[in-house]
Design a protein around this nucleic acid. Structure first.
Lengths: 207, 207, 207, 207
DNA sequence: GATGAATGAGTTTTCATTCAT
DNA sequence: GATGAATGAAAACTCATTCAT
């Protein structure tokens, strides 16, 4: 939050950087990291390759920056969604809704993001994603705190540790949303966020 | 199941193929498809590149064969685990146990497998994974049938469609197991499969 | 003929291109298309392979460009030779002289050119030479028109169709010149172009 | 002419050799020397590659043998055609007829042959064709002797040296026949061998 | 003697990166 | 400070040749 006083120079720089990242994003999510060349990105962004290298140390750095930026956007949106409600249940409902919207509006990035944070963490050079994973962890802890508070306030039964519940909800969302993204026609995504939440909320067996 | 009488020649062939796949697996899961060269694989497998190409039409074919073979192994093991029990709950418990074992014994493949079936479907040539996805779908339907039968027999409350429950359980397992695999020390994986199942079984809120 | 105002850049480009083609020509005519590698050409031309590919899409394109360029040069020179004289006989004499000069000054290209337009049309990818053949045809028609006009003006007896006479003269020239080029010491090429022309002009038998 | 007493063993060998050459011929003339692999030849000939190498030192040797064999066949046929007639003019007529037949029946080989003896002598390794060229020379001298005798016997006017006349006739035949072979529909080859001979026999200008 | 599996040098082509202008 | 021409390492893949069976 320190982007206060940027000289015209700096603002211009930032804008150029954004244009480069935008071009890269489009190409990467369309063709995958290894099938996109720096020249392609430069051309799409309407800069010279040399200029690209003024902004990013190398291709990997560009990719990393891109993913990090997007991840931040997503986590910010999701964190906001959680913070916007007071009630724990409403927070979770907001979160599922926000996640659905994020997925729908960013299908291609999401794929890229999953290639990175999902199992395919090796897809580019190993270790590339340390920073990303940390932010993801951080977000999971935010989500966990909702469960924690809910449990403390007796609104939730403690069927598992808060962090585990956060992992559970997040993975359920990802699974259902990816399912939907892959075949939006066959399995229309339920408008109702409760389809996902109910799996957590209601028990499969009587207790 | 027609691998009855293999000539010495054929057995030798098969062994070589396995060695090649093993070398490829190790390298792919360590560095990712695009960061491994055919020469590297050949060297690790202690064959000449030319020999590699006698067994696999090209790099993609080698990769596909590798993934398909492993995926089959996994799905077979999981299907067996489900079939071995009679009771629906026991079936699910068996499934979680088997999945934990499969993950633990095949960390590196699992990563590769996720790169394939997970979001990064574009990572190699699009469509490469059609077959794999179909087998996955098929397995999910098998898992769904357990929920269906459980619901019919009133052992489970119908908190969601059987297929959705299958997706849910599978994704919960994946999430928890990957979490564990990534940092086995910090978050030791619970011996008890019920940690995962409880999230499905017990409701978060009273109903 | 629009090569008027070439920027320094463009002139430089053209010079580089010529150097590449010159290196390629030397190697191709010495060892044949298939026995020359792009690396060899690049090295001889003192460029990096990558630079070669900036100028020519691929090896075939480089080869094609080379042949086309040379063929054009030759046909232009020969057409000019024909046009420079008024009298039909003088035109033919000029043509033979010009052809002798062209052959003498371009032995190596000539070999390459023959591999292309001669029988070995399959030597590179089939159809590669369509354009070249067409230009050759066109030139033959120009030569034929000399015979046609000569016959019309009763300077020549019509011992065959004009086009056939053109083919005949051309093949006689090629045969004699190649003979000479292959063993210039044994069979010194006659200074007098009439040695070839006489075979056409004079009859072997009285008529 | 020393193939008198061949043991069964030797005859068998010879037959195998012929089969290999036949397979190679078909492939070479269809696709060109460099686009045919030894495996392809072996497969077509229904032998193992190793066996191919028992008969020919290497690919080049196989090719050379093939061309030499075919060249011999052709030159023998043409020499026979010349010897069969008594009269010089009839000898030449016979020669043209025979050459036409040889071309028509062996289009593909002819192409291969021309790639070798024509300008493209470099097409395989340089110098490959020394032997072939000598046989060609020898044949030209045979043809020259016809002109020589014709001149001596006053049947022909001496419009050029006999050897030159041989070169001339041969090149005329080649040119017209190749023309025909390339587009047999457009330019049907004249049944009458005199179309070619007349160019030599009759003078273009009155003398 | 025949076989064909195994070899690995060699080929074309791409592309991340540098640096003179 | 931006440019994009030039670079050359590295990749996928082929195929002539050998040699153990």
């Amino acid at each position: 939050m320190k982007h206060k006083k940027l000289s015209r120079r700096e603002r211009e720089k930032l804008r150029q950087r954004q244009e480069m990242l935008a071009a890269a994003l489009e190409l990467f999510s369309e063709k995958g990291y290894h099938n996109v060349s720096m020249h392609e990105i430069a051309e799409k962004a309407e800069f010279a390759v040399g200029t690209l290298y003024k902004f990013f140390r190398n291709k990997e750095d560009l990719y990393k920056s891109l993913i990090a930026e997007q991840a931040d956007r997503f986590h910010e949106a999701l964190t906001r969604a959680i913070e916007e409600a007071d009630d724990e249940i409403e927070k979770l409902r907001n979160y599922v809704k926000a996640k659905r919207e994020v997925f729908a509006a960013n299908i291609s990035v999401i794929r890229l993001y999953f290639a990175e944070t999902g199992g395919a963490s090796f897809s580019v050079k190993a270790g590339l994603d340390k920073e990303i994973r940390e932010r993801y962890e951080q977000f999971l802890r935010t989500l966990a705190s909702v469960f924690e508070s809910g449990i403390k306030r007796k609104r939730f039964r403690k069927i598992a540790e808060p962090y585990q519940l956060a992992v559970a909800l997040d993975s359920l969302c990802n699974a259902f949303l990816l399912l939907w993204l892959e075949a939006p026609d066959d399995r229309p995504f339920p408008e109702d966020p409760d389809v996902i939440l109910n799996i957590l909320f209601k028990g499969l067996v009587d207790t």
